[in-house]
Design a binder for these strands. Structure first.
Lengths: 230, 230
DNA sequence: GCTTCGTAAATCCTATAGGAAACAGGATTC
DNA sequence: GAATCCTGTTTCCTATAGGATTTACGAAGC
């Protein structure tokens, strides 16, 4: 068994307990698609797989439940949240439209130089990321996309808006994996991200907000047009 | 030991496990002010107080952490979140301003007759609630206030916006208790709530949103003026 | 007097065990 | 043949126990 608590000399160790590791592992599996929507997440089974006792698994799942990624039924256990319906998707986009433009406006005013650099890097990564057909190939693309929006939320410098976005962000990422149709709109999406970034660089908060509205609405439009089901 | 699982004939029992009861008890204590900001929430101690084992308490606290009401430090335990600073309050109001007007606009379009009745009732309860100096006396006032906003969020018919509001709602309620200065603005607040309701009744979504903006901004203004510290 | 160290208590964290409920399958009964 | 009952297995849920860590407190040393 590996010992996660090995400390570098003089360094106050990682201060991470098993439940944290389990949480991160589950989150990664959910984002990866290794855990498919609707699948049961057995507490004992997960404990066996991760080679820990059920207690940390219970704690990790309790935290995850609040993110909407897994759902719990008393005395029956946890399941991965089902795939998005068209209605769910519409609601998600509606929620994004009410939060992300505000984040963009605030971030534009409060942006730090480091934050701006990170934002530039995210757009750069979007442009250079491979966009193959398999998940492994466009994984870094999705990661850069999510990072872009997450950075803006963080730079808005409002703990509540950040928390609200993070909840949405997980769902968005999950939708990109399961509800979507792969990457069919990279060129347009990149241009829209660039437009948001440009507005940020020009220091025009209202334009940044407008570009974000523009982006989210176009994402919605493309996804609705591609809708594979319903 | 009492048996909580006794079922009435033909009734599908409570389907509630101990962790749920612990969660609700803790939530109530946090909202009541029985648990003061900064106070340590010992897992073992809480288990003793509630006469359960630490396992359900851990699960309940893990869920509560995500609401921002308690904070966890690995290997050190949970504490009730500290009192709001002026900055925290400003951020909270900023977040409300970006979510609640949207909720009001959507709710106005999608409101059901039952929802409207419940909303009327909430305003009525606000008007008739006692507003004495002790907590027990204005508790029902705060409850009606929170219920009004919660109802609007629910009627907006968007699970993500509702989840986002609920997280804020808990913090708002907590602030009303600890950060505020009691009820000093009931007449004005009631008038503002009435204005939102009137806009809803007139079926004008934009006006409903505007009245909500008006309300939140005035709440912010009054609270800032009264600010007891900083 | 202040710092440092060591011991003890409390607490957190994890593992293990056992009772209770849900689920699946087959046998029995109508 | 269909529905019901029974039984075994799996899983969840809770309690308990023990190791690890933090904290408090007092003594020893500078």
């Amino acid at each position: 068994m590996p010992d996660p608590s090995v400390a570098r000399a003089g360094f106050p160790v990682s201060r991470q307990v098993l439940a944290d590791h389990v949480y991160e592992a589950l989150l990664e599996w959910l984002m990866d698609g290794r855990l498919e929507p609707g699948a049961a997440v057995s507490i004992d089974g997960m404990a066996r797989d991760l080679d820990v006792s059920p207690t940390p698994v219970r704690e990790a799942l309790a935290r995850l439940e609040h993110t909407g990624m897994v759902r719990r039924v008393a005395l029956k256990g946890y399941r991965v949240a089902p795939v998005f319906t068209r209605e769910d998707f519409a609601e998600l986009m509606e929620a994004r439209l009410s939060i992300e433009p505000v984040n963009a406006r605030l971030a534009c005013s409060r942006m730090t130089p480091d934050g701006l650099d990170a934002l530039k890097q995210a757009v750069e990564d979007l442009k250079t990321a491979p966009r193959g057909g398999t998940f492994a190939e466009y994984r870094s693309y999705l990661e850069a996309d999510e990072r872009f929006h997450q950075l803006i939320a963080a730079q808005a410098n409002n703990q509540f808006l950040l928390a609200a976005y993070n909840t949405l962000g997980g769902q968005i990422q999950r939708f990109r994996l399961f509800g979507g149709v792969g990457i069919t709109d990279a060129e347009q999406a990149i241009a829209e991200h660039q437009a948001v970034l440009d507005a940020m660089l020009s220091g025009d908060p209202e334009k940044a907000a407008q570009m974000m509205i523009d982006h989210v609405e176009k994402v919605r439009g493309r996804a609705m047009a591609d809708a594979p089901e319903d």
